[in-house]
């Protein structure tokens, strides 16, 4: 694996920013890191780069502790805040950065500069927000990094530049780099990512390949003759479940046959399974617990990727996870 975290935890003045995070980023893949604001994405990324020290647990990059300085020669990073040294020109900051990376490619740099149309003689402080993002990308992509850690790389980019950015990321993967990027743009993730991690309140709420997600994630609609038996649908694979009188709506990421069979056994008149978009999975994964009195299952009770999906009927076990 390129990146691995084991029970990685960061606490700021008693508040958990990242909570026992276990993450494995596969090699030569594009992994997206999704999560609402304040869910701990940037803190996790900073711990991978040793900018923030974990309270407990460990982060490994290329199998070595994240505090190992030499691993950063193989990592390209774009920070959430793309600001660079304002007192340097674009040409000077490139000149400054090159010597730190033995694998720096002048050809790659030239291509990226042309692609992003950056003015070499302009001071960094005079660049627009979008240009800052482009320059940060040039600096991260020019040294043939084996791992690209990009924290909201498309922020501030216009649609054309955003396309160029995505193209550059895919190109880097084509050359063997693994990409780990955080974003709020679910559509981008669906286009380029192989793997998705969804973080909610510092915990991993969903993890899997996009292929698995498309194959296994479904919205299950069931209609019952009487009141929908919400509590009886607590099964492994169920992420959220809401009931409205006789209608039950479930978002599930596996164990679909069991869920469907259980609904029919409970007397459902009809059971329909619809494919889910990543956006819907994301919203289900980060859903806040519903207010008391609402006819719904507390979403958080199901937000555990470790639920034993493979079990036969799995009765009760998924619901017990929390």
């Amino acid at each position: 694996m390129i990146v691995e975290t084991r029970a990685l935890t960061k606490q700021y003045r008693g508040k958990l920013a990242v909570d026992s995070l276990d993450l494995v980023v596969p090699e030569a893949s594009i992994s997206a890191f999704l999560g609402p604001n304040g869910s701990g994405k940037t803190t996790t990324i900073k711990m991978l780069l040793d900018m923030v020290r974990p309270t407990s647990g460990e982060a490994l990059v290329f199998g070595e502790p994240a505090s190992t300085v030499s691993i950063r020669e193989r990592v390209g990073y774009v920070a959430e805040d793309k600001r660079l040294y304002g007192n340097m020109t674009v040409a000077r900051i490139l000149e400054f950065t090159r010597p730190f990376y033995p694998e720096w490619s002048r050809d790659r740099e030239r291509i990226l500069l042309q692609r992003f149309d950056l003015p070499l003689d302009r001071k960094v402080r005079a660049l627009s927000k979008g240009m800052h993002s482009k320059l940060a990308l040039v600096l991260a992509l020019s040294h043939r990094a084996q791992l690209l850690i990009l924290d909201e790389p498309g922020e501030g980019l216009d649609p054309v530049a955003n396309e160029q950015m995505l193209e550059s990321i895919v190109e880097a993967t084509g050359e063997g780099a693994a990409v780990f990027f955080s974003t709020h743009q679910v559509a981008e993730v669906e286009r380029i990512a192989d793997h998705v991690f969804i973080l909610s309140a510092g915990r991993l709420a969903f993890e899997g390949s996009l292929e698995d997600l498309r194959a296994n994630c479904r919205r299950v609609h069931a209609v019952f003759p009487g009141r929908a038996p919400l509590e009886d649908m607590r099964l492994p694979g169920v992420r959220t479940a809401t009931a409205d009188r006789n209608r039950l709506s479930i978002i599930a990421d596996g164990n679909l046959e069991t869920i469907e069979r259980r609904a029919r056994d409970l007397g459902a008149i009809s059971v329909d399974l619809e494919p889910l978009s990543l956006r819907e999975v994301f919203l289900a994964a980060v859903a806040e617990p519903l207010a008391a009195g609402q006819p719904a299952v507390d979403a958080k009770q199901y937000l555990r990727t470790s639920a034993p999906r493979e079990s036969g009927d799995g009765e009760g076990s998924g619901a017990e996870q929390s």
Binding site: M51, E80, R83, T97, Y101
Partner: peptide, 15 residues
């Protein structure tokens, strides 16, 4: 405070 520290610390140089 000027936010360029993230770039600085991402360089392969010990803090």
């Amino acid at each position: 405070s000027t936010a360029s520290v993230q770039f600085t610390l991402s360089l392969p140089v010990p803090r």
